[in-house]
């Protein structure tokens, strides 16, 4: 079982220091655990990291997260990493390629895994939280997150590419000693980095916008928006206080409330008289 983890040059959301994106650290955890489940015959078959970009130092943290070896394809700033990555992955032919659901440092649109899957003609399973060997040899069982702990379990015959969802197990701790022992292999660019489809954008500092209030219609007046914010939909307006009610009555009120907001299923499947 050969596993590659795609790495991107992340930035810490607060401090802006170069860090390994959390999703990729989670991907490494999945990869190392899966690698251990299959047993690692030798160092070359152990999970490895792959990064295409100007600087390998940006992803060196991945060594401390549990990868023994990183491959770095030197690319100029802004070049499309897909052809180079596709060429290298075609050459190494890993059985499983893991990536974060959205890499950082490039276009940050999360398109690279999809472009790679198309270039390598492999199925892509998005937003996985767990990967395990399937019952049949050569198959993998992947759990996709559907949000709120619901899963879609997909069985697929490898090789396959998967992206990792934030609900996957939290990253392992960075170990300085492991990072010290790991190696970074520099590879020259193997394919001409042509420009991928890019949208010309204009950048400016981020401005936080108010979240849309549920139920407030578009183009409504300020009064309507205020009503939506404080009116029917907000918890404040529905604030009900029952002081010393009969426990039975309290129970009825609670159940009615829970059903109204939809967290408890209605009592009967057939319609009320």
């Amino acid at each position: 079982m050969k596993i590659a983890v795609l790495l991107s040059a992340g930035r810490h959301p607060v401090s802006s220091t170069a860090v390994l994106p959390r999703l990729e650290a989670q991907a490494i955890r999945i990869a190392t655990r899966l690698g251990a489940a299959f047993g690692v015959p030798d160092e070359a078959a152990a999970p490895f990291g792959l990064h295409a970009g100007p600087d390998a130092a940006a992803v060196a943290d991945a060594l401390g997260q549990g990868l023994g070896r990183l491959e770095h394809i030197a690319l100029s700033e802004g070049a499309d990493p897909v052809p180079a990555l596709a060429a290298r992955l075609a050459a190494t032919a890993p059985d499983l390629i893991l990536a974060g659901r959205r890499g950082q440092g490039g276009g940050e649109s999360g398109i690279v895994p999809y472009a790679l899957a198309a270039a390598l003609d492999r199925p892509l399973i998005a937003d996985v939280v767990a990967v395990a060997p399937g019952d049949e040899a050569g198959t993998l069982r992947l759990d996709q997150s559907l949000g709120r702990g619901a899963l879609r379990r997909v069985v697929v015959r490898g090789p396959v590419l998967a992206t990792v969802h934030p609900d996957a197990p939290a990253p392992l701790a960075y170990a300085f000693g492991r990072a010290r022992r790991g190696t970074i292999v520099s590879l020259g660019p193997t394919a001409d980095p042509g420009a991928g489809p890019v949208i010309p954008v204009e950048e400016r500092p981020y401005r936080r916008r108010p979240k849309v209030v549920k139920g407030a219609p578009a183009g409504g007046s300020a009064a309507e928006r205020l009503k939506a914010a404080t009116g029917e939909s907000g918890a404040a307006s529905r604030g009900r206080l029952l002081v010393d009610p009969d426990p039975e009555e309290a129970a009825r009120e609670i159940l009615a409330y829970l059903r109204r907001i939809g967290v408890v299923a209605p009592p009967a499947s057939h319609p009320h008289p």
């Binding site: 392992l172 701790a173 960075y174 170990a175 300085f176 000693g177 492991r178």
Partner: peptide, 9 residues
């Protein structure tokens, strides 16, 4: 911590 990254979760 340094060699194994085995900090408490």
């Amino acid at each position: 911590t340094l060699e194994r990254g085995a900090l408490p979760e």
